[in-house]
Structures are given as C-alpha cells and as structure tokens.
Design a protein around this nucleic acid. Sequence first.
DNA 1: GCGCCAAAAACTTGATCAAATTACCCCAGA
DNA 2: TCTGGGGTAATTTGATCAAGTTTTTGGCGC
Lengths: 226, 226
Amino acid sequence: MKSTLSELATSSTAPEKHPAHEVVYQRVRAQILFGELAPGQAITIQGLVEALGVGMTPVREAIRRLISDGALMFQGNRRVSVPLLSLSDVNELIYARKSIECELVRRAALRMNSTQIDKLEEIDLALDSAIRDGDIPGYLVHNHAFHTTLYTGAHAPVLIDLAERLWLRFGPSLRVVCGRFGTQSFPDRHKDIIEALRRQDPEMAALAMERDVMQGMEQIAQGLPA
Amino acid sequence: MKSTLSELATSSTAPEKHPAHEVVYQRVRAQILFGELAPGQAITIQGLVEALGVGMTPVREAIRRLISDGALMFQGNRRVSVPLLSLSDVNELIYARKSIECELVRRAALRMNSTQIDKLEEIDLALDSAIRDGDIPGYLVHNHAFHTTLYTGAHAPVLIDLAERLWLRFGPSLRVVCGRFGTQSFPDRHKDIIEALRRQDPEMAALAMERDVMQGMEQIAQGLPA
DNA sequence: GCGCCAAAAACTTGATCAAATTACCCCAGA
DNA sequence: TCTGGGGTAATTTGATCAAGTTTTTGGCGC
C-alpha cells in the first residue's frame, strides 16, 4: 500500500467527481507545497501524462494554472520548472506575507469563535509532534494547515487567494531549508497567535504572525543557493 | 480596417510567434482589463473558439489561467463568468492595493532615472487628453499603462505579479463606473506621484499612490450593484 | 567548433463522450 | 379554450483523448 504525501494531502472524505484537470492541479500543487518537487526541477507535460495516466489536455490546463499561481515557472523556450528563489524574491515575499497574512490574522481575531480556535490548537499539537519527531513532511503539512485554517476564519477570499499564492512560491525552498537544518530551529509562535485569538486582540495576533513570518522567511533566505 | 481596443493593446512591434494559448490569454486579459467584458457576463469555451478561430485546447488553457488570476470566476456548474464584486471584495482589494502598490512606488522612487520618469509623464499626458475627451477606453488603457510602467521601475517581479492580479479583479467594475460617472470625476494624483519620483521621495510617492488608490476604489464601491 | 539529423517534447486540432441547459409537448385543471 | 407544470427530447457546452504538426534539443560527424 503506497500512499505518498500528496495523495494523503489531497484525499477527500467525500468522493465527489472532480474533473481530471482539477485532480492533476491539486496533486502537483501539493507536491510543490510539501516539498516533493525541488527548486529548479524541470516539469514536462509528457512526464505528468505518463505519471498520472491522464490525457494531455488536463495536464496542460493544470500546468498553466500553476504557472499563473507562481508555483511553476515558464522558462521561455517551452520549458517549465519549479522556480528558484533569489534573495530579492525572498525580500519581496517577506513584505507581501507580512502585509497580507498579518491583515488576515487581524480579521480572524475579530471573527473566530472558540470552537474554531480549538480546531486550530489541535492542528498545532499535531505540528508539535511532527517537530519533536523530526517529521519534515508532517511539519510542512500541519504548518500549512494551521495557516489556512486560521485564514479561513478571516472570511476574506481575495486576501486568502493572495496568501495561498505566496505559499506556493516559497514551498519548495522551505522544504530544502528543513532538510538542511531540521525542524528544531523553528520556535513556535503559533501559541502566541492562538492566545491573541482567544483574547480577540487583533494587533497582538498580527505581531505574533509577523514574528512567525519573519522566522520562516529568514530561514529560507539563509538557505538560499549561494 | 477594424481594430478593437484589445487588438491595439496586445499588438506588439516585434512580430514574434507566440503560441495560440498565449495569444488567447493576452487577448481576453485585455478585454477584461479594459472593460470589453462586463461584470457577470458569461464566458464560454466554444464562444472563444469561434470568435478567435483557434482550437479548444488553447482556449481552455487561457481560461484556466484567467480563473487562477481572479480575472474570471468558475461558477461551480462548469460555467465561467466575469466576477461581480461585493462590497467586502472591494474592501479587501483596497487593503491589498494600498499594501502592494504603495510599496511598489516606494521602490520605484529609489530606482527610476529621469528618462524613465519622462516616459511616465508622457503616458500621463495621454491620460489627460483621454480624460478631457471623455475617452473611456483610452482612459482605461493609459491609466493601466501608467501604473504598469511605474511598477516596472520597482524591479520587484513578485509584487508586480500581485498588483497585476488585483487590477484584473476590478477592471470590469472600473469600466462600469466610468460609464456611469464619466472620467471627469477622477482628479489626477499622478502629478503628485511624478513629482515625488523626481525628488526620489519614497514616502511622498507612497502617500500620493494611496490617495490615487483610494479615489479609484471608492468610485468602484459607490458604483456597486445595489 | 559548426552544422546536420534524429528523437523527444510541446502545440494544435478534431473527434468523441458526458453533462447541463433549453425547448417543446402533452396533459390536467380552471 | 386557455394556462401552467412536469417530463422528455434536442441542442448546446464542457471534458477528455489521440493523432498530426512544429519546435527544440542533443548527439554525431565533419
């Protein structure tokens, strides 16, 4: 029984019939977010056609979407690859993440009820175990789940869309950093965020989020290819 | 000799061979940005196939991209349409535009040379004539050109990508507002921006941009369907 | 090193199948 | 007879695939 990370992350309890191009998109998206694809790695349409056993049209649609997301990069001569981040890119991502995600957590602080916050705490506990065990894929999955669940509470679809896009850009590089430094080097700001949510204190939440973002992004900056 | 707005806006001096899916994307993108498609309007694959004389795979790719951009909206039952903005959407767009575009103009203020600023001033003059003449399409095209040229000077690809996406979201609604109120109601903050650029004063530029953004978005908010 | 040739991959199209909407018709009830 | 509702048929549209065409790449010989 083989079950890859991306299969787990994309499996749904409700067996709705998703179109093939959607399945391919979600699958590759998860591979990028959770580090199964390395920065700089080449992606071919044919490769995905053979790997996933679908026709070429759905694969093409999924790839165009991912390029638009910034999750993949069009290299000009018909080549597609996972982007390599420059230091300048990381600096832009830092600014954008701080702007967007701090606002999301501010809004979430005003709107989330205690049930939703409990759910968040539950995810954070799973995240803690992953960190203790040095489980890098688990860390990536739960860390992403923590943020997306948090943002869902903000009821801000446009900002959430922007935030998800930013995560797709640094996902592969985050995986590399974890592989190099392990998960220990991430002190947990999530506890501060949760406390701020319970107090319904937007500015405290935004401050904790800013620290969380900075920690992650500085790690990525240090792990950049020289 | 018929030449629509989107044809003009996408025509390039260099007749490079772009793939059909790219041509379709640029074409529909321009139609959305410059108001040839109304909010709520339905988009069909077959319609574009017939209108543009290309196969359906390139059209599908272009549509997926535009959906990912937020320029089009997937309505669940296989239907695609130009999004209608809610007041909440506009509020999110205001925050995002202020964050991203003010930072872009700050960076541009530190990097643009006087030749580039001259180019910007030239575009702004064309914009002024369009306003005087009540030329709404011209206003939309030149206004967009002003901002993209300005942002190009910031050398910040990630932030530029985010900003372009935001423009795609409110493009159709901006067209509606112009049609209702005309172009007179847009006092010109661009002069302030240009002066700030010449002084290389990032904060003055950011402030002028913030006013420009607020003016445009408040117009859109007031023009929202009741 | 330069150019030609072969193989692989991307691009495009047309055909086929499935799903959804629309049109239409028939019948019941006023 | 007229009207309205329900159900079915036809058309429209979307989804997928496979084949043909074009482009790029990489190797090989000169």
